[in-house]
């Protein structure tokens, strides 16, 4: 399914309604006596913050049906932004109360109620830890795998304490129907998390893969070839990605998203090309043949149009070429004649990932390649520097904008720049696709 503003609007409306559901639940049914405006405000932000926390689990649950209209990476980007807002809402809840009435300090006083004080203090600490460990994970040297488990546990703890706190305060939650709704609202994220972290890995166990090839590529990258063991293999659309677990257990926390780089026509050997980026990817070349692997997916809406008359403009840098490579290989295998313009940024000629195969594809497909080198050798007479607005204009001015779709993949800065520039050129939102994984 491609992006449509109708789907996006429905999706956003559903999100807002679910986040407001505690407030809606509060105003239906019997109303308790009103308190001061500050208390009601505080309760309001607390309710909304807690509902947002619950929705966070849905956003990060990799539910294909939920993620489809927007693309999973956009969903995770939204999850990240929503997490910050949820944090602000939840923190505002005690701050408003404490700032307007010091009597509320009793909630945090262990002499008044030890368990309550402990839980509420711990939940504030957990929230701060949740945000700090996510926004500054790399700076504090927290490994991705550890972060993933801590993230889920802290989130569940916050949601659980939030629910208990809400039910104990006993305001706006009277009546069995409302209590049931609250339990469902909190139980659903819990069930989802169990589904993501337990049930899905269990299902994946029935679909193992085996590493059949580890190939070194230009530009410090490695291609890993996986063959399905005892099943037909995953069917995907070029441009999509999957979460890969290398090792004997699908429960491993070392699960990372990578784009397919092989042709979607070939399912007996699925390839991923991974660049050494200074973290766990540095060991990818040491993967042994025969290693068991599991794939969760496919995900992503970064896929070419079915209509062969629509051309593809790919603006990529470095390892951002991988999803495009999958498209080009698929076009070749399916004998597609669609026009493709590839603007491909790299530092120098010797680090251009898939350089030789792209040159070959240029003769087989209706493909024009523009290499842009930031540190070229002295004899380089083509595009030098970075992929700038001015450079893009030079090539995009030559095509009929309405007959093309645009695919952008590369470092964050490049993607922000190119997305904005395409919009300023009048390219409609629905025709711009981007893929990024630097979520955490």
């Amino acid at each position: 399914m491609k992006f449509s503003s109708k789907h996006a609007a429905m999706w956003i409306l559903a999100y807002v309604l679910l986040v407001l559901s505690p407030l809606l639940l509060a105003i239906v049914g019997p109303l308790p006596p009103a308190r001061s405006i500050w208390v009601e405000l505080s309760v309001g932000v607390g309710f909304v913050g807690l509902a947002m926390m619950g929705m966070q689990v849905v956003l990060s649950g990799r539910l294909r049906s939920v993620a489809k209209p927007l693309g999973l990476d956009t969903m995770l980007q939204f999850h990240r932004q929503a997490g910050i807002v949820a944090f602000a809402f939840i923190l505002a809840h005690p701050l408003i109360l404490l700032a307007t009435n010091s009597a509320y300090l009793d909630f945090l006083d262990p002499r008044v109620n030890f368990l309550r004080a402990l839980a509420l203090t711990a939940v504030i600490g957990a929230l701060v830890l949740l945000i700090v460990s996510t926004l500054w994970r790399e700076q504090i040297g927290l490994r991705y795998e550890w972060w993933r488990s801590i993230h889920a546990l802290l989130a569940l703890f916050v949601i659980f304490v939030g629910l208990v706190h809400t039910l104990q305060v006993q305001y706006y939650v009277s009546g069995n129907v409302r209590r049931l709704a609250w339990f469902l609202a909190i139980g659903a994220p819990l069930a989802l998390m169990i589904n993501t972290r337990v049930i899905r890995p269990l299902q994946l166990r029935r679909f193992p893969y085996s590493v059949i090839e580890v190939r070194e590529e230009l530009g410090n990258a490695w291609t890993i070839g996986l063959a399905p063991v005892g099943h037909a293999g995953m069917r995907f659309t070029p441009g999509q990605f999957a979460w890969i677990t290398l090792g004997p257990s699908p429960f491993s926390l070392k699960q990372h998203p990578f784009s397919f780089s092989s042709s979607a026509n070939v399912s007996d050997s699925i390839e991923f090309t991974i660049k050494e980026l200074g973290d766990f990817t540095n060991d990818i070349g040491k993967t042994e043949i025969g290693t068991t692997a599991f794939l969760e997916g496919p995900f992503g809406a970064f896929t070419p149009p079915n209509d062969q008359d629509i051309g593809v403009v790919a603006i990529v840098a470095g390892v951002g070429i991988t999803p495009i490579m999958s498209m080009l290989r698929t076009f070749r295998d399916r004998k597609r004649s669609r026009e493709v313009l590839l603007v491909y940024g790299n530092s120098d000629w010797d680090t251009i990932l898939f350089r030789n195969e792209i040159a070959q594809l240029e003769s087989e497909l209706n493909l024009k390649v523009v290499h842009v080198l930031s540190s070229p050798s002295d004899d380089w007479d083509q595009e030098a520097g970075y992929i700038t607005d001015e450079l893009l204009d030079r090539y995009l001015d030559q095509i009929d904008q309405d007959r093309w779709q645009y695919f952008v993949c590369g470092p964050e800065g490049l993607m922000d720049e190119v997305e904005s520039h395409l919009r300023s050129r009048g390219v409609p939102l629905k025709d711009i696709f981007s893929e990024r994984f630097q979520i955490v």
Binding site: I12, Y15, V19, R35, E40, V48, Q77, F78, M415
Partner: peptide
Amino acid sequence: MLHIYVRWLMIAIGIGLVLAVVVFALWRTG
């Protein structure tokens, strides 16, 4: 959906939610 718009979308939703909470509090306290 473009990433450059996700932040703005969240800011808009955040403002909308704050307004909803304010309306709720005002409605409750008359």
